[in-house]
Amino acid sequence: MNRFVAWFHRWGSPKHFYDMSGRWAPWMAALFFLTFIPGLYYSLIGSPPDYQQGESARIMYIHVPAAWMSMFIYGVMALAGAITLIWKMKMADIVAQVSAPIGASFTFLALVTGSLWGKPMWGAYWVWDARLTSELILLFLFLGYIALTTSIDDKRTAARAGAVLALVGVVNLPIIHYSVEWWSTLHQPSTVKVMGKSAIHLSMLIPLLLMSFAFKFYYAWVVLSSARAEVLDRDKNAKWAADVAQAQAGEMPS
């Protein structure tokens, strides 16, 4: 337990974070490519088309992992927000702030792929289906978080305000989700049956899992890299940052 606490605390140090993220980011990138390329192959070529939906079903291999990521990233932001508020850990708020635009992009991606899939399947780009609607609201929550944190000038205040907002959002998300579900069953009973996940065949499950792992690694890679840049920017007056700058200048041929 003590070793874990010590390990956890070390992540609070900007220099340690900078070093570790520099070491981990390339591995995440490598894992991303290792899963993404076969994932792309299996989802576009190596898997059979759906017997009912035909080739359009392939959009699922992007859509479903993106939708999972959108929720996962909001969860990460809330968790980082809790860490920010409880332990005042600087790195946690950097991770939360850097995650927000990525999460918003995944949410947007899920919405766009969903509506592209909806056109041939449901005959309309947009249907007020419960999942689509709550995904749209999730996008609003992400954008609200970004709007709040960017409009507060002081970075630490912005981080703490964002942390409260993310926690409030995470308490509200299930409520919003279930109320929207309730609302859509009330207004338009059984328009759509999204295919059951347990019924998915192995040949489709493999690319789906590969892609969802690829997205996770991509997120880890991007979040580490941009958090690294953000750490350096915030600590630019610290000695360790000057050392880093000097070391890099030494590497470059002058």
Partner: peptide, 20 residues
């Protein structure tokens, strides 16, 4: 304006149940 961005999405459950 920022306030409306933050608060309106959180109002949705109230709107749904009340209007229904």
């Amino acid at each position: 304006v920022l306030l409306s961005l933050l608060v309106l999405p959180l109002y949705i459950p109230v709107l749904i149940f009340a209007a229904s």
